[in-house]
Simulated scan of single mutants.
Amino acid sequence: MTNFVLVAGAWLGAWAWDEVAAELRSEGHDAHPLTLSGLAEKQGVPAGQQTHVQDIVGEVERLDLRDVVLVGHSYAGVPVGQAAERLGDRLTHVVFVDAMVPVDGESSLSGWPSDEVREAIAASGFWPPMGADDYAGQGLTDEQIARIVNGSTPHPGATAIEPAVLTGDLVELAGTYVKCLLDSDEPWGAAADLLKSDRWDLVNLNTGHWPMFSQPKELARILHEAVTGP
């Protein structure tokens, strides 16, 4: 049995994976959606970048999971990538879903225009959630947008500005990068570098940046096929 550990991006919790997790379980897998510290039902828990890495590693060890596929969406790619290299032979595969890819010594905000986000974090300690208008053009229905907005919580700012810590090279792991085409046409930066390795596959998905809401069945199929083949 494959154990999928599902980690959503900024502002979201385990609840974001409800439909994907149900699809994976219907295929005979086990799904473990995870809420990171400081978010959703864990609001108020202090969190830095390494807190989120330990959230993931700790959950795998607590449940004594084997044959693990770590799935990181958006921001969560940064702690998921760090956790992946710490799981040893428990890990089978890594999937980045339109995700940031960690680079040793760099933060989640490195490499893209983020002055406004950094100013908000400096002022309040949090990365504020987006409003409904910000989700336009991402393949989401009004109901899906409302669900995301109503469920979002402020994201602990330290997790976004503290540096990643990697001791190895992620290209040595087996992985899949899911690129959501309504967000941008192709992976860039560290994600593009990963895909130069023959151990990493690229899968394009014709939807926006939040496919667990807009195309949960298709995303679940991609996750299933990442470990079973098409």
Score class of each variant (00 low, 15 high):
35 T>E: 05
193 D>C: 01
209 H>V: 05
188 W>H: 09
201 D>I: 00
83 A>T: 07
65 L>D: 10
83 A>P: 05
139 G>V: 12
175 G>N: 11
83 A>R: 05
138 Q>H: 04
198 D>G: 04
55 D>N: 14
42 K>I: 12
141 T>G: 02
222 I>T: 05
184 S>F: 04
168 G>P: 00
51 T>V: 08
85 E>F: 08
177 Y>C: 08
158 A>I: 02
156 P>T: 07
176 T>A: 08
105 G>K: 12
116 E>R: 15
42 K>P: 08
7 V>Y: 11
182 L>Y: 02
15 W>D: 09
121 I>C: 06
11 W>K: 02
156 P>A: 04
16 A>D: 09
53 V>F: 14
132 A>V: 12
9 G>I: 01
89 D>N: 15
174 A>F: 10
32 H>R: 01
9 G>L: 02
113 P>V: 00
73 H>K: 06
143 E>C: 10
89 D>A: 13
212 M>S: 05
166 L>Q: 04
99 A>L: 04
15 W>S: 08
112 W>N: 08
90 R>V: 11
47 A>I: 12
26 S>I: 04
100 M>F: 13
173 L>N: 02
202 L>W: 03
152 S>Q: 03
28 G>R: 01
179 K>E: 11
211 P>I: 08
62 R>H: 13
103 V>W: 01
44 G>D: 09
133 D>Q: 12
139 G>P: 04
121 I>P: 00
201 D>G: 03
10 A>Y: 01
28 G>A: 00
160 A>W: 01
57 V>P: 05
59 E>A: 15
20 V>L: 05
27 E>M: 13
127 W>Y: 15
222 I>P: 07
67 D>E: 15
187 P>T: 06
18 D>F: 12
75 Y>V: 09
86 R>W: 00
149 V>F: 06
137 G>S: 09
63 L>A: 14
213 F>E: 14
201 D>V: 00
22 A>T: 14
64 D>N: 15
220 A>T: 10
117 V>K: 13
24 L>E: 09
134 D>W: 11
226 A>G: 09
59 E>K: 14
152 S>H: 01
167 T>N: 10
212 M>C: 06
75 Y>R: 07
128 P>R: 15
60 V>Q: 11
182 L>Q: 09
214 S>W: 00
99 A>W: 00
